[in-house]
């Protein structure tokens, strides 16, 4: 669960990019975040991770067992300095630039970096990494040096790094960027299969249409539309008002 209540963020230069923004994503939902360039999609995600200090209330909840807690949330933490490590442990963030995400010499070392920081023994962390790589069909990248991968391979490896952390919620910034059609298809399949809450920021509206059940449109620092993906992404007028276009697959269908 992720809840923003009246969240505002102003860049040091004075430009307000999030302006009293409020929304809530329930546990298990897969939500697409769309909007033109520079509307603050990445900043919104950084605010959720406490990487930028936004005003307002941000609450992050962990997926719980419905039979025990009675609902899908067992623990909800309000963003503050004390809760920050626990909140970051819950959220997995895929950066726009994979080169910034992968900083260890090899893919395997990058994958075990997070789990070992959180106290997982090395053998267990390596086993978990193996499982994730096998699931993604990326075993061949296991010992590959990070600087010897193509852009697409780096992207898939960065996703593997995230999944090895077993986060409760995934925040993905342009996950399909720099992927070839085959890997993009693989990513879409993966996103559909992955359980847990997901917030996907993307300009790839076709992917959003396929993977997300709900869509938020961000403009002028506010959520200007929030509804089922099938409805919003078919509303040409709404999309054009927000400097967006119909997904390509719908344009072809006419």
């Amino acid at each position: 669960m992720l809840k923003f209540e009246n969240v505002t963020y102003t860049y040091p230069g004075g430009e307000t990019v999030l302006n009293g923004l409020s929304f809530e994503i329930c546990a298990g939902e897969c939500v697409g975040l769309i909007g033109a360039n520079g509307v603050g999609k990445s900043t919104l995600m950084k605010a959720a991770l406490g990487l930028v200090s936004a005003r307002g209330t941000i609450t992050v909840g962990e997926n719980g067992n419905p039979s025990e807690a009675g609902n899908a949330v067992s623990k909800a933490l309000v963003m503050n300095a004390e809760n920050l490590p626990a909140i970051r442990r819950m959220l997995g963030y895929l950066l726009q630039d994979s080169d910034s995400q992968m900083f260890m010499p090899t893919v395997l070392e990058d994958m075990i970096f997070g789990p070992m920081n959180y106290g997982m023994p090395r053998a267990e962390a390596e086993k978990k990494a193996d499982e994730v790589l096998e699931r993604l069909g990326l075993q061949y990248l296991k010992t590959r040096q990070n600087h010897r991968m193509s852009g697409g391979e780096k992207r898939m490896a960065a996703i593997a790094v995230l999944l090895a952390m077993e986060p409760s919620m995934l925040l993905m910034d342009e996950p399909s960027a720099s992927l070839d059609p085959k890997n993009r298809r693989k990513l879409i399949r993966l996103l559909k299969e992955l359980p847990g809450t997901k917030l996907i920021s993307s300009h790839d509206l076709d992917m959003v249409l396929e993977t997300c059940e709900r869509v938020l449109i961000l403009k002028d620092g506010q959520i200007v539309a929030d509804g089922p993906a099938g409805e919003i992404l078919r509303n040409q007028t709404l999309l054009e008002e927000n400097d967006l276009e119909l997904p390509f697959c719908l344009q072809i269908q006419g």
Partner: peptide, 11 residues
């Protein structure tokens, strides 16, 4: 960005 990425993974 790189440092943030490290922090987000518990560094």
């Amino acid at each position: 960005e790189l440092y943030n990425s490290m922090l987000l993974r518990g560094y």
